[in-house]
């Protein structure tokens, strides 16, 4: 919760500086954020490669449960594919790039801003925030009508942190480890899928 507030304040501060031109020509040709993005992805890689405990955790689970993150990814993107003709302003790959955030709004929106510009970045930011908020609100409804895996699939990359409490509350504690594995695997795929769909 505290980190969400910091994130919103940071974006608001940026918008403020942009509106009142407090940072002259910052997004010009010498854009520093591309270099920072490389540093970010390098550090994301470092932390992923470093974390051996996750692999051990996954090994101790039933092998059938590893399908869940892939169901999350494939069915989310299928859903986006179905509705993408309704988003007439955007091409199908652009909609899929936004959908590939899987509620990981901070990383997906900065990636998309770099590759496709700030307007699609804003769509990604709003869409992925909506997805997280949707899970926080609708988790009991999802369990009732779609079963105990649905909130985990809807939560996407957030099921190991921000939506984990609501998932364990509505699905039961035995689903915590499934949620964590889902979150880790989906989280890992976000940068790859977003850059892939921005490239086509």
């Amino acid at each position: 919760m505290r980190s969400s507030i910091i994130i919103f304040l940071t974006i608001a501060a940026g918008i403020f500086c942009g509106v009142y031109d407090l940072i002259p020509d910052f997004m010009g040709n010498n854009d520093p954020s591309m270099i920072i993005l490389y540093i970010l992805l390098f550090v994301v890689g470092l932390s992923l490669g470093n974390d051996t405990e996750i692999v051990e955790k996954i090994k101790t689970q039933s092998p059938y449960l590893i399908v869940i993150p892939f169901v999350t990814i494939i069915f989310s993107l299928l859903g986006v594919l179905v509705v993408s003709p309704l988003v007439t302003e955007r091409s199908i790959p652009e909609s899929l790039a936004v959908g590939s955030g899987f509620a990981y709004y901070s990383l997906s929106s900065v990636l998309i801003t770099e590759y496709k510009g700030a307007d699609l970045g804003v769509v990604a930011l709003m869409s992925n925030i909506m997805r997280e908020v949707f899970v926080l609100i609708a988790a009991p409804f999802l369990v009732k009508y779609f079963g105990k895996i649905a909130p985990i699939c809807c939560g996407g990359a957030t099921t190991m942190d921000s939506t984990l409490p609501i998932i364990t509350k509505t699905c039961g504690n035995e689903f915590a480890i499934i949620a964590i594995i889902n979150g880790v695997v989906v989280d890992f795929c976000v940068p790859f899928l977003v850059t892939y769909f921005c490239g086509i």
């Binding site: 169901v71 999350t72 859903g79 769509v123 709003m126 869409s127 649905a150 699939c153 809807c154």
Partner: peptide, 24 residues
């Protein structure tokens, strides 16, 4: 932009819910 975001989100969560339902 918010409307675009909303449509994409609804598609994604609808798909994820169906997927979650099937695997469950």
């Amino acid at each position: 932009l918010g409307m675009q975001a909303f449509i994409i989100t609804m598609g994604a969560v609808a798909g994820a819910s169906v997927g979650g339902f099937l695997v469950y």
